[in-house]
């Protein structure tokens, strides 16, 4: 944007002001770099340590540069399958470098015990996130369109109800949702989780805002051609809403991929129904002895799909946040 503009010529400024500006600039960049390191380093350390065996994670967590040989075994087993030796921390780590092991990932991706069932939790998370996303795209855009364009009894009141629900804190809903789903026999089911989250106020308002920005003439032309409201919406209006729908899809997917509280309440007592965040908390265990290799490998696997989506659709993430921020104005 303005980055191409050259620094203004120094005509009225004295050289001491110029020096001060230079110093402030250097301090500013130093702050940015420092914060960037603080924000990124934890992820680097997490990824690095997810490839270490347990003693090395605990005793030599700082080493982060992987060097060959890759795929070292954490445990040496005899012919009977018993563990006869474990890879010590200093055997795996040397200075800042370490030999990556895939044991944590192997253990976590092949295990299917009730409290260690990452493949199943991954599948569940995909099911929850995608179903909720599709339903929200449909229901939120329909409702947003109705509120933006159609005059029907109660339009204004419904708009304020939707706006009002944004104010209800999630914690308040925790228990009554549990009770309600319990009464309906929907606890620990896919349907139970999905139906509760199948529409949301933020999405409705986002879509409403978008539909208000497209010119009315397009629909009027379609009306002259004899299209009814439903055809008009699905064939003409909705395809034009692709940017807003993409932003909504991403937000919804991200929200559900990371949703812990609803999973805890709705599907939190049946390990087969867990999503990844819920599963991770079980994997962590409750004692002080955390199996870091498993927990860190699980954390990386949980984050990876979101990270890929983030880097592909980065523009939409930033636009979405910007939208909600500017909406606050």
């Amino acid at each position: 944007m303005t980055s191409a503009a050259a620094a203004p010529p120094i005509t009225t400024q004295t050289s001491s002001v110029y020096t001060l500006r230079r110093i402030l600039g250097i301090v500013g960049v130093a702050i940015l770099v420092l914060v960037a390191v603080i924000e990124i380093a934890p992820f680097v350390l997490t990824i690095a340590n997810s490839f270490k065996c347990d003693p090395a994670v605990t005793n030599r967590p700082a080493a982060f540069i992987p060097v060959p040989p890759f795929g070292v075994q954490c445990e040496t087993r005899n012919e009977a399958g018993q563990v006869v030796a474990r890879l010590g921390a200093d055997e795996q780590v040397s200075g800042a470098t370490f030999n990556p092991s895939f044991s944590g990932y192997q253990a976590i991706l092949t295990s299917t015990g009730p409290n260690n069932n990452l493949p199943r939790w991954l599948l569940n998370t995909v099911i929850y996130a995608i179903t909720v996303m599709i339903l929200r795209l449909l229901f939120d855009s329909m409702a947003g369109y109705a509120l933006a364009r159609l005059s029907f009894p109660g339009n204004r009141i419904i708009f304020f109800i939707v706006l009002g629900t944004l104010m209800i804190p999630g914690v308040v809903l925790l228990i009554p949702r549990f009770l309600l789903l319990n009464q309906m026999g929907l606890l620990n089911t896919y349907q139970g989780y999905i139906i509760v989250l199948a529409a949301d106020a933020f999405g409705i308002l986002l879509m409403k805002q978008f539909f208000e920005s497209i010119p009315r003439e397009i629909e009027e032309a379609a009306a002259v051609d004899g299209a009814n409201r439903f055809m008009m919406f699905f064939r003409i209006v909705l395809p034009m809403a692709t940017p807003a729908l993409t932003a909504l899809a991403i937000f919804s997917f991200q929200g559900q991929w990371n949703n812990f509280m609803d999973a805890l309440i709705i599907v939190g007592t049946k390990p087969d129904m867990f999503n990844l965040p819920m599963g991770l908390t079980v994997l962590r265990g409750s004692g002080q002895d955390v199996q870091y290799d498993l927990v860190l490998a699980g954390s990386v696997i949980t984050t990876l799909p979101m990270a890929i989506i983030f880097f592909v659709f980065q523009r939409y993430f930033v636009e979405g946040v910007t939208y909600s921020g500017l909406a606050g104005q």
Binding site: F139, Y145, L150, F152, I161, I168, P176, V196
Partner: peptide
């Protein structure tokens, strides 16, 4: 059309946000 369009979302918000409150 307006009522039909708004009702699925409204029903869900009503059932799982307003009723629980």
């Amino acid at each position: 059309a307006g009522l039909v369009f708004v009702s699925p979302a409204l029903l869900i918000l009503f059932m799982f946000l307003i009723v629980p409150l």
